[in-house]
Every structure is written in C-alpha cells, then in structure tokens.
C-alpha cells in the first residue's frame, strides 16, 4: 500500500490524488487542443537541441512551482534567433501562463519564474524564432491544488506591499558593460485568481493579477511579459541582460485592476 502524503496538508500533494489526470493519452490530447488554440495551424516542432524546460518532478508547493527555460546557443542568431517564449500549464483553468517577448538588451540563455499548478499536468515552453518557427519543450509535473492554494497568510501585509519590487543580481561579480549578467526581479502582488478566500469576510476574493510587465535597460527592451492567472503570488523572474550605458533598469507593471507600478533600479556598471 503506498503511503499517502499531503494529509498534513497544505495545498500541495506528494502523491496522486484520485482526481488527478493520470492518462498519458488524455494528456497528449489536451496538449493537441491547446496547441491548436494558441498557435492555430502553425507547426510546433520538437524543441530538442533548441529549448529545454526544467521543473521539479514533484512540486514542493503547488502554488509556487519554479520553472527554468533554457535556450541553446544563447538563443540562436539570424532567423533562428528566439524572439519569444510561451509558457503553458496544460492542466490549469487558464493554461497560457505567460508570453515573454525579448528585446535587444536580453541575454537569452535562460529564464526562470514560478507558476501555480492545479493538477498533475504537462508543462510546455515554446520558443518562437525570428524566422517564425515554433519549438516546444515538455515536462510532466506532479502537483495539485496550486490555483486555489491560499493567498498570503497576511492580507494586510500583502496590500501594504502591493507593487513593491526588488532586484537582486545573481552572484557577486561586478557588472561590466556589454557582458551578460543575471538578475532576479521580485514583484510583490497577491496575483489573486478568484479562487482564494478572504480571511475576514470568508468570501472569495475577486481576481486581481499582473497582466503586463516590461523590463528595459536604459531605453532598450530586455523583455516584456503578457501574463495570466497562473503566475505565483509575489512572482519572481530570473533573466539575463546585457548592460549597455548607464541604465537604469526600468520596470513597469500593469495589473488587471489597471493599477500601474514603476521602479527604476540604478546599477553600478563598470567599463570593460
């Protein structure tokens, strides 16, 4: 008899609930439908050698599943250069988690974020090249309940922190002009998707989530993100960028209540 975890609970499981989607054929059919819904008749090729997607096989917390998208050859060049990445959580109520579009200040090797996962599901990351080709990478994740997982433990703190941002640089090497670096961008936002309950009123909280994020270095685009309800609460993005000039790193966020948040991060960049 298999031991059954997750009864201590949290909204996360480490063993299969009976209602989870376990049938590989059903999963493949679901992906075929989604692919058609997002990309129409366009061919989506196997991304082996071009794009990889990493995620824990068993999520520690279904409301916070870290994913890493890696692009080979620095994202390619010429017509093979990657210009956008889609992230799809097949089993979620709203499967298209986000679309990243890259600009001239991006370093394309890797991109990380955190998503909610509602049931055992395939995840997909799809790269689109300048030449218009699509390449998909796939990953199966065991997690459940992430979409209705409780929002923050402290709603007052969450509202007082709404829209605050932090930028941390990866590693301790100083930034050099023209040399790729990696940053972690933290944005405080409850990202309520309409499935969480207010602690005081016991009513469901209306959805309020981040829709658009634009990150620029100086005037040059690093990336923009069109997002949906599958991003985690207080989302975090780890991305590569190539500093040219004095900056600053400029971040603009728009949420579904049409609230706008802006922050400039001054970075100390040395000359090579």
């Amino acid at each position: 008899m298999r031991a059954i975890a997750a009864v201590l609970g949290l909204a996360l499981c480490t063993a299969a609930p009976a209602w989870a989607e376990e049938d590989p054929d059903a999963r493949a059919a679901r992906w075929a439908d989604l692919k058609h819904a997002v990309f129409g008749e366009r061919e989506v090729a196997d991304g082996a050698g071009i794009i990889t997607l990493e995620a824990p096989a068993r999520a520690q917390d279904a409301a916070l599943v870290p994913i890493t998208v890696s692009l080979s050859a620095g994202g390619g060049a010429g017509p093979g250069k990657v210009k956008a990445v889609w992230v799809v959580v097949d089993g979620n109520p709203s499967p298209l988690a986000g679309t990243f579009r890259f600009g001239p200040a991006a370093d394309l090797r890797s991109l990380k974020t955190r998503v909610r996962v509602d049931q055992y599901t395939l995840l997909h990351a799809i790269a689109e090249t300048e030449g218009g080709h699509l390449y998909a990478a796939e990953r199966y994740v065991k997690a459940a309940g992430g979409c209705s997982a409780p929002s923050t433990k402290d709603p007052q703190l969450a509202m007082s922190r709404l829209g605050q941002m932090r930028l941390r640089l990866d590693g301790e090497a100083p930034l050099r002009e023209g040399e790729a670096a990696t940053a972690h961008l933290l944005i405080s936002h409850p990202n309520n998707n309409g499935m969480q309950v207010d602690q005081v009123s016991h009513l469901f909280v209306p959805p309020r989530y981040i829709q658009d994020i634009t990150v620029r270095y100086g005037d040059e685009l690093v990336f923009s993100l069109g997002a949906d309800i599958s991003l985690s609460e207080d989302p975090v993005f780890t991305f590569g960028f190539v500093p040219q000039g004095a900056g600053p790193m400029r971040v603009d966020v728009l949420d579904s209540s049409q609230a706008k948040f802006h922050r400039d991060f001054a970075l100390d960049v040395g000359r090579s």
Binding site: V7, C13, P17, A18, P150, Q196
Partner: peptide, 18 residues
C-alpha cells in the same frame, strides 16, 4: 473559519483518496 472555506474541500478530497 476562513481556512475551512479555503481548504476544507481540498483536505476532504485528499483524505478521502487516502
């Protein structure tokens, strides 16, 4: 009480499955 609304159904499902 709020947590019951939030997680009660989820816990029921997980425990019923176990």
């Amino acid at each position: 009480a709020a947590m019951l609304v939030q997680r009660g159904e989820f816990y029921r499902n997980v425990l019923a499955d176990a």
